[in-house]
């Protein structure tokens, strides 16, 4: 077992974990944060995307021990990073634009979209599509997801994460 200390959704967490435990397992099984999903289990689909020190990473493709000393934000803590209401503006935009059908890709899609606007607050449609390259949606055909990111960008609030 290896001792790790990190911050998850604003709370300090300290635990002993097996070195082989994946970050996504740690979040779901140890902390009960099941908002972060395991989709493909092969690092392709992006459903497990969280923020590590402010940037999107695939939590199924890193070890929990690699997150020692870091700050992790999951979909469950995203709204708390923004002091304007119950939902983060990106969550609100996904809601407004109905940017989902089954919803399985949504947590990862939202976490990556927030990071995308952090890097580029005013992306073109093409830049949004390419910027979401690491997140797969099998329902929507992406159109409403792109609209949601455009809506959040237009609101000028999406970068505040």
């Amino acid at each position: 077992m290896t001792k790790i200390e990190l911050t998850v959704d604003g709370s300090k967490v300290s635990d002993d974990v097996e070195p082989r435990m994946l970050l996504v397992q740690f979040l779901r099984e140890k902390l009960g944060k099941t908002g972060t999903l395991i989709g493909c289990d092969t690092s392709n689909c992006g459903a497990c995307t969280v923020h590590l020190d402010g940037h999107a990473v695939k939590s199924c493709n890193m070890l929990a021990v690699q997150a020692d000393g870091s700050e992790v934000t999951t979909i469950e803590g995203l709204a708390d990073t923004y002091d304007g209401g119950e939902l983060h503006p990106m969550q609100a935009a996904f809601h407004e634009c109905h940017a989902l059908q089954c919803g399985f890709c949504t947590p990862g899609m939202i976490m990556r979209s927030v990071d995308l606007l952090g890097e580029n607050p005013d992306p073109s449609e093409q830049e949004i599509r390419e910027g979401l390259e690491g997140n797969l949606c099998r329902c929507t055909g992406y159109h409403n997801i792109v609209r949601a990111v455009q809506t959040a960008a237009a609101a000028g609030k999406g970068a505040q994460a």
Binding site: T49, V57, N61
Partner: peptide
């Protein structure tokens, strides 16, 4: 390389 999340790690 790969995608944005992979490039971040």
């Amino acid at each position: 390389v790969a995608d944005a999340q992979v490039r971040n790690r």
